[in-house]
Amino acid sequence: MPNVERDETREQRIETEIIVDAGNDKEERAMGWYYYLDDTLNVPFLAKWKKKVRKTGAIEEKEVEVLGMAPDEDCLRDMFVDVVYPGGNDEDVFSAKLSEIEAIDADEETLEALADWQYWLARGYKF
């Protein structure tokens, strides 16, 4: 059961821009999302990485810089981005689930793309 109301504007964008040619093919739907996000997220941007701690279930928040999408082969089941802690270097890059990222300082286009992904998940849609 979706925990967010249907948004016709988002539904239209998802159907006509993101998964337009995918049909029921899971990999094509995933790649539609991947390329939409890769083209739309204006990186780098600052964000909070809200990661659930396995043992306690608590939410741990860390400030990160989102560098871009993780490699496409890593995004066939979920969307991931590469992040680094502020002041970190190339050896400090991690992959984070996009669903765990909350923008702190990003432009409108990036915020809309992030909201589109959160909407997709909240509606219970799958690849």
Rank of each mutant, 00 (worst) to 15 (best):
E109R: 12
L121M: 07
E15P: 00
V84N: 06
C75R: 00
I101C: 08
T16Y: 04
V4Y: 08
V83D: 09
L121I: 12
E100G: 07
M79W: 03
T56H: 07
I14G: 04
P71Y: 01
E17T: 10
W120F: 15
N24E: 15
A106Q: 03
N89A: 13
P86T: 03
A103P: 15
A47L: 09
L67Y: 07
T16K: 05
I14N: 02
T110M: 02
D82Q: 13
E73A: 12
D39A: 14
L98Q: 01
K50I: 08
K52H: 09
N89R: 09
G87F: 05
V4C: 12
K52N: 12
D105S: 14
R10F: 15
E17G: 05
Q118A: 15
R123I: 03
G57C: 06
W120A: 09
F94E: 15
C75Q: 03
A115F: 06
I104F: 05
W120R: 06
T16Q: 11
P86V: 01
F45W: 01
Y36Q: 03
W33N: 07
K50E: 15
R6Q: 13
T56I: 04
G87E: 11
D21R: 06
F94P: 01
E11H: 03
I19M: 07
E61W: 02
E73P: 07
E73W: 11
K62M: 13
E102F: 12
T9F: 08
D38I: 01
E28H: 11
P71A: 08
W49P: 04
L114T: 04
M79N: 07
M79D: 12
Y125T: 00
E108V: 11
A122Y: 04
A115R: 04
I101F: 01
I19K: 00
V53Y: 06
R6A: 14
V64T: 03
P44Q: 00
G68R: 00
F127N: 12
F45A: 05
K52Y: 07
R77T: 14
G32E: 08
V66W: 02
E108S: 13
G57I: 01
S99V: 12
E100D: 15
V93C: 04
V53G: 06
E15C: 08
K52F: 09
S99L: 10
G88N: 04
S99T: 12
E112L: 10
E60T: 09
Y125L: 13
R54I: 12
A115M: 07
L121E: 11
G87V: 04
E100C: 08
V81D: 07
E108L: 09
Y119K: 00
E63N: 11
D92V: 02
A115Y: 05
A22W: 05
K26I: 08
E5K: 08
L114G: 06
A70C: 05
R54E: 15
L76P: 03
L111H: 02
K51R: 12
A103W: 00
W49D: 10
E27L: 13
V64K: 02
W120T: 09
M31W: 05
W120Q: 09
Y34R: 02
G124Q: 01
M31I: 10
E91W: 09
L121N: 08
P71S: 07
I101N: 05
W33E: 09
R123V: 02
I18S: 08
T110R: 00
